[in-house]
Every structure is written in structure tokens, then in C-alpha cells.
Nucleic acid binder design. Structure first.
Length: 271
DNA sequence: CAACGGACCTGCCTGC
DNA sequence: TGCAGGCAGGTCCGTT
């Protein structure tokens, strides 16, 4: 479900409702996520005030007064505010109860998500420290892709989906950005000029920013922290459009598997 | 080091 | 209707 725009949409939906509030109780119904949830999480967080919600790539960083919580939604996770009286349903693994009567619920059927308690500075944590530049940050440039790509033979689509190269470009938006930049997803990363990488960086930023603007892409049942769906799906040029007409040239959109992920492109527009 | 496949899970859709 | 098979928005880790 969630790529960077969906994570950012979630962050924006939650922040105004729970920032500044304190945890009263934390309920953990299922500890078996990607990494086991710390047994002592309820006591560790009890009474702590939430100062801010940040984001790095697809990770949400909940900054409490004396610690931080790192949450990743994996493939099927979501965080939503629910009514205190709402009974938990299947796969509702954690409830964060705040002293302003808000309840943030973590739901994740596939359990690829994670909820990690951090004692150190969040950005020093190995999972965050090794991330590449933030695609929507001001300092992300063509050189950030061009330089580390030299000598690399893997497909450019797999390359830009590597979070250590650039943080948070997932399967949907990788296909979309490559379409906008006119680059074939299978092209070897090391055989793309700086000029074209600059164009690609612009396309990545454009597609992510537009998707954030529309509240993310709702493919199945994505909704933000307040329960509203996203509207970017109607803006997709290639993702999920196999055998349909290219919106630019009217050619036929192709689907291919690249790096074990479904990839979509227009063979006439992308080289 | 780079590239690749496997691993972790459940839900949903398709086709027989 | 039932069931097997394939696929899904992520990413870490082990093996070549």
C-alpha cells in the first residue's frame, strides 16, 4: 500500500491531531512484525509527550520527549485515528491512546511493517543512517544518481528503487518517473548521462510532489490518518496500465518483470 | 563490492 | 462453490 506519498499523507493527517499529546496507554496485541515489538514498549512510552512526527524516506519518526519511535508501514500497513470505542479488528496490532482522547491504530495484515523504539538519535539509527538523499529535499540532484551509478549494470528502475541511492522511490513511482523522463526501465544505470539523470531527478520530484498533493495513490484501500482516500491513481501514466494506450503517443503500454517487480513503460516514449 | 534470489506474511483475484 | 496458483504498493539478508 504505502509509498512515500502515502506515508507523507499519513504523517500530515496524524500530526495536527496528536502532536503535543501524551501517551496514556499503549496496547500491543501482536508483537510479530518485521522485527519483534519491544516487550517493554508500553511502559517505555507511557506518559511521554509526542513532540513531532517526522519522515525519512518511507519511515515515520515519532519524536517523544525522551525517545523516538520508528514506524514503517511495509506493504500493507496503515496508521489511522479511530474512535476510542472502536473495537479492534483482525490485524489491528497496536493502539496508541493519547490523553486528548485520540487513538492511533497500527494495522498491518502482512506484518512487513515495523515499530521500533529508539534510544539514540533517530537519524543515527542504522536503518536511517544508510539511506540515500531525500527525493523531495532541496539538495537532491542528478549527480546523486549519476555518481554512484558509474560502472553499475543493473536496470535503472532497480537502481532508483534502492533506498541507499535515493530514499523512498517505490514501485509505482519508479515506473511513473521513468516514463516522465523518457528512460527505459531496463537501461543499465551506468549507461545514463548526467543530463538524463538530471531530468530523472526532476521527474521523481514532480511525480512524488503531485502524488502528495493528491493525497497519495489509492489502489486498494489506502486512506490517510483521518480516513480519506488518495486521488493520484487517475494520474498514473503507466503503472497498472498494461495493454492500454500511452497517454502521450497512443502506443501500447508494456509490462515486464524487472528485479522481481512488475514494471510498466511505453516502448515508444522510453529509451 | 555488485547482483540476485529468498525470506518474511495475508488477502484478493483469476481460472479451472 | 471450492481450491490452487499467482500476485500485491517493501526491504533486509544470505549466497554467488
Amino acid at each position: 500500500m504505502p509509498e512515500l506519498p502515502e506515508v507523507e499523507t499519513t504523517r500530515r493527517g496524524l500530526a495536527p491531531n496528536i502532536t503535543g499529546a501524551r501517551i496514556t496507554t499503549l496496547i500491543v496485541r501482536e508483537r510479530r512484525l518485521r522485527w519483534p515489538v519491544d516487550r517493554r514498549l508500553p511502559e517505555l512510552l507511557k506518559g511521554q509527550r509526542l513532540d513531532a512526527i517526522g519522515r525519512r524516506g518511507k519511515y515515520l519518526i515519532f519524536e517523544f520527549e525522551a525517545a523516538a519511535l520508528l514506524i514503517h508501514l511495509g506493504m500493507s500497513g496503515h496508521l489511522r485515528l479511530v474512535k476510542p470505542s472502536a473495537p479492534p479488528r483482525r490485524h489491528d496490532h497496536l493502539d496508541f491512546n493519547f490523553d486528548n482522547a485520540q487513538v492511533m491504530r497500527f494495522h498491518d495484515p502482512r506484518r512487513f511493517g515495523s515499530v521500533l523504539y529508539l534510544r539514540e538519535q533517530p537519524l543515527e539509527h542504522p536503518l536511517l543512517k544508510s539511506l540515500g538523499p531525500e527525493p523531495l529535499g532541496n539538495s537532491f540532484t542528478g549527480a546523486d544518481l549519476h555518481t554512484p551509478s558509474r560502472g553499475r549494470h543493473l536496470a535503472v528502475k532497480s537502481f532508483i528503487m534502492d533506498a541507499h541511492i535515493v530514499a523512498g522511490v517505490g514501485n509505482i513511482y519508479a515506473s511513473e518517473a521513468l516514463f516522465l523522463a523518457g528512460i527505459h526501465p531496463r537501461r543499465a544505470a551506468g549507461r545514463i548521462s548526467l543530463d538524463r539523470y538530471q531530468r530523472l531527478v526532476t521527474s521523481i520530484r514532480e511525480v512524488l510532489a503531485a502524488a502528495v498533493e493528491k493525497g497519495g495513490t489509492t489502489l486498494r484501500d489506502f486512506v490517510n490518518g483521518s480516513g480519506e482516500p488518495g486521488y493520484f491513481a487517475q494520474c498514473l501514466n503507466v503503472y497498472g496500465r498494461k495493454d492500454e494506450a500511452c497517454k502521450r503517443c497512443a502506443g501500447i503500454i508494456k509490462q515486464q518483470t524487472i528485479g522481481q517487480r512488475a514494471s510498466y513503460y511505453c516502448p515508444r516514449c522510453q529509451h
